[in-house]
Simulated assay, not measured.
Amino acid sequence: MTITVVAVLVLVVGFLVAAAVVPFAPASARTTTYAAPTSTLPALSFPGYGATAVEATDFPESLRTSGDRKARSIASISKVVTALVVLDAKPLRQGQAGPTITFDAQMQGLYATYAAQNGEVAPMPAGLQLSQYQTMQVMLMKSANNYAGALALWAFGSMDAYQRAATTWLHAHGLDDTTIHEPTGLDAGNTSTATDLVDLGQLALADPVVKEIVGTAQATVPGAGQIENSNKLLGMDGVEGIKTGTLDQAGACLLFAATYERGGRTVTVVGAMLGGVDHDSLDVDVQRLLRSVADNFQVVTLTHAGQTFGTFSTPWRDEADAVSAKAAEVLVWGRTTVTAKTTLEQLTFGAAGDRVGRVRFTISDHDPVTVPLVLERGIEDPGVWWRWTNPFQGTAA
């Protein structure tokens, strides 16, 4: 009899010990349904003539066009190509004046040549010497054709050599719908599409020397005198460049860029408008277009801090949410699609704030964003009494 009692006691103790120490299986986990934020498709204010393209840099989905897509004469916008091609051959760092250019008789003769074509020119007195930077100022700001031609002769020795260098440079940068015959733009055969010009504008802004010059309102250059930027929009509505163009065959043209503060970051809009009647009306249309582009930047909230993305449930009816450890938002332009994929880790017990998973947001035309998930509240061991009264429930297999 005593042996039987002892045996029973041993079995009971063994049971209680086993029930108390057998590990639990991980809590069951379920994810919640994500309600994606919404955004709108912007309506832009395009003009009803010519050809226009506009794009927010770093937002490739924002590229929008209006009008025809054929190559059009680009007039003095050609000088942006000239500046970049010369800098490719004769690099210049920001803050440097560069080598000295002595304007010889051939260069000085360009004044009469271009003036006879009703082209913009600037004084170039005999014996004049200027730095490369100053020469580029007169070319880009005043749009002086004789300085553009002189710069091309200085850098390449002849107009033919310049044309070959420009063609090579255009192909190297994927501007296959752009054709440049000479450095000034007085030749109506210098043509491009509006979309190619958007790419050209982004290349111009990427060069600190060109960006600085096209963003300068006025300067005094020896020999040329005080020069003012031909871009009358400079400094208005965030406009920081880039280049005007005017020719009978081209109409009024503008390659433009503007910078705005949106969603805590700086965004740049680059565009080209070709075929306007005159620069006064074109400038109004550019301003209207830029405002419509700028107004369509939106900050999309992906998640708030503490937002629930899943729930852990235990056999002892304890629950704890997996919540986002921080808020996350992105700056987008136009209609945007957002999806979320939640991954929860295995969990048996945990303290509030423990990392328990992640949520990865996929945003159209944007890099993915990953946010860690943490326990909103702790999950604790239910204790020996629950284990004894609910033997082996929820234990690991």
Score class of each variant (00 low, 15 high):
253 C>K: 00
324 S>C: 14
94 Q>K: 09
256 F>Q: 01
33 T>Y: 12
389 T>A: 10
300 V>S: 05
262 R>V: 12
34 Y>F: 13
71 A>F: 02
392 F>D: 07
366 H>P: 10
201 G>Y: 02
278 D>Q: 08
71 A>L: 02
318 D>H: 14
21 V>I: 15
4 T>C: 14
396 A>I: 14
270 V>T: 05
155 A>H: 09
39 S>G: 13
335 R>K: 15
238 G>T: 05
104 D>N: 11
100 T>K: 03
327 A>E: 05
201 G>W: 01
212 E>A: 13
66 S>H: 13
228 E>Y: 14
387 R>V: 11
255 L>T: 00
115 A>M: 06
337 T>R: 11
149 G>Q: 03
8 V>Y: 12
109 G>A: 09
280 D>M: 08
129 Q>P: 14
106 Q>P: 01
75 A>K: 00
184 T>H: 02
255 L>N: 01
46 F>M: 15
146 N>T: 00
2 T>M: 11
40 T>W: 06
349 F>S: 02
63 L>Y: 07
93 R>L: 09
136 M>H: 05
21 V>L: 15
361 F>A: 06
326 K>L: 09
330 V>F: 12
263 G>Y: 11
85 V>R: 01
76 S>A: 04
221 V>D: 13
303 T>E: 10
384 V>L: 10
55 E>F: 04
233 L>C: 13
11 L>W: 08
221 V>G: 10
276 G>R: 01
55 E>C: 07
297 F>M: 12
30 R>Y: 12
336 T>Y: 15
266 T>D: 15
185 G>V: 01
232 K>V: 02
87 L>T: 00
245 G>P: 02
166 A>Y: 07
341 K>H: 15
185 G>S: 01
164 R>A: 14
183 P>H: 04
98 G>L: 09
350 G>T: 00
18 A>Y: 11
397 A>C: 11
58 D>Q: 13
207 D>I: 00
208 P>Y: 00
227 I>Q: 05
151 L>F: 12
75 A>G: 03
45 S>G: 05
179 T>I: 05
342 T>H: 12
227 I>N: 04
102 T>A: 12
362 T>H: 09
393 Q>W: 14
20 A>M: 12
173 H>S: 08
265 R>G: 15
13 V>F: 10
177 D>V: 01
155 A>I: 04
272 A>L: 06
168 T>M: 13
27 A>V: 08
346 Q>R: 12
161 A>I: 01
206 A>D: 10
315 P>Q: 07
26 P>W: 13
315 P>E: 08
235 G>Y: 06
3 I>W: 15
173 H>Y: 13
3 I>A: 13
388 W>T: 04
196 D>T: 02
92 L>W: 02
316 W>Q: 03
71 A>T: 00
286 V>I: 06
75 A>W: 02
120 E>H: 03
379 I>D: 01
354 D>E: 09
21 V>S: 12
181 H>L: 14
